[in-house]
């Protein structure tokens, strides 16, 4: 059915409103990060900086220790993403290819963990980490975040592996491949877009985490970006331009990931439905 002109105007109008609604916070974040501390709180607010300054960036990067926070965040997020994807590959393959007692129960349990709010698990995790000496360590934080991202990774990877015909495994086996060779030479390359999507998801979940970092890290040397940003909210003053600058920096990595890997991401999230 052909749409009338007024219908097109309505559709594009609605899209434009949604675009503005979504992009305005980013726009405000970027422009505010280039304003002076005074201008950012001045009333009435300025749309663009009267005086363009990079003071906020210099301050957080050189004085507030955000370089270290950035490194910590990168370490934790990369490790969490890698660990949950690696374990996810093995677990997903197992759930996809083997029928064993308790398979369904374990998979359901994995799914059920996604329904428990993370905040309810903080207490037990805090206890576990202190008992094992992993409290206030990046490794402890990585383990905790992996346990949160892993069920999702396993389910996603299992779903992608289900789309690969079992005959591929059997052909590889007849060709002389071991299980590991079959997995990494024949199956993983076929689910790569899905794997990339899952890894990015785990990375972003970890990158944006505040709850676990707040509860499991107290040493300033081990703080992550999100934790660092919260410290810019003082008792008597909020350092808005610095918060905005830190948030811009924190957004760079996810934005780059989306730009570089968007092909895989879209393919990964759609291929299960359309794979031949």
């Amino acid at each position: 059915m052909k749409k009338s002109n007024s219908m097109w105007v309505f559709i594009y109008g609605a899209l434009a409103v949604m675009l503005v609604y979504n992009l305005t916070p980013f726009f405000w974040m970027v422009v505010s990060s280039f304003k002076s501390e005074l201008e950012v709180v001045s009333y009435p607010a300025t749309l663009l900086p009267n005086v363009f300054t990079t003071d906020a960036y210099e301050k957080i990067w050189l004085q507030e220790g955000f370089l270290l926070y950035f490194k910590n965040s990168l370490t934790v997020s990369l490790s969490t993403a890698a660990l949950s994807s690696l374990v996810g590959i093995f677990a997903g393959y197992g759930f996809s290819r083997f029928r064993f007692k308790g398979r369904l129960a374990i998979m359901t349990a994995f799914l059920a963990t996604q329904m428990i709010p993370g905040v309810l698990l903080v207490g037990p995790y805090f206890k576990m980490m202190t008992l094992t000496g992993l409290y206030d360590t990046l490794f402890g934080l990585i383990l905790a975040q992996t346990s949160i991202t892993l069920p999702f990774s396993v389910w996603m990877i299992k779903g992608y592996m289900d789309t690969v015909p079992i005959e591929i495994d059997q052909a590889a086996e007849v060709d002389g491949a071991s299980r590991l060779q079959t997995l990494f030479l024949c199956i993983v390359p076929l689910v790569l877009p899905g794997l990339v999507a899952t890894t990015i998801f785990a990375f972003l979940l970890s990158w944006g985490d505040l709850l676990w970092a707040l509860c499991l890290i107290s040493d300033p040397q081990k703080q992550t970006m999100t934790l660092g940003i919260t410290q810019l909210v003082g008792q008597f003053r909020v350092y808005w331009s610095e918060i905005m600058a830190a948030t811009v920096i924190a957004s760079i990595i996810p934005a780059c990931l989306y730009l570089v890997l968007q092909r895989y991401l879209v393919q990964g999230f759609t291929e299960a439905a359309v794979k031949e």
Partner: peptide, 16 residues
């Protein structure tokens, strides 16, 4: 299977 020295052609080809 890999030690039986056999080769198999599948119905759906099972090419990589």
């Amino acid at each position: 299977a890999k030690e039986r020295d056999i080769a198999m052609v599948f119905q759906n080809y099972a090419l990589y």
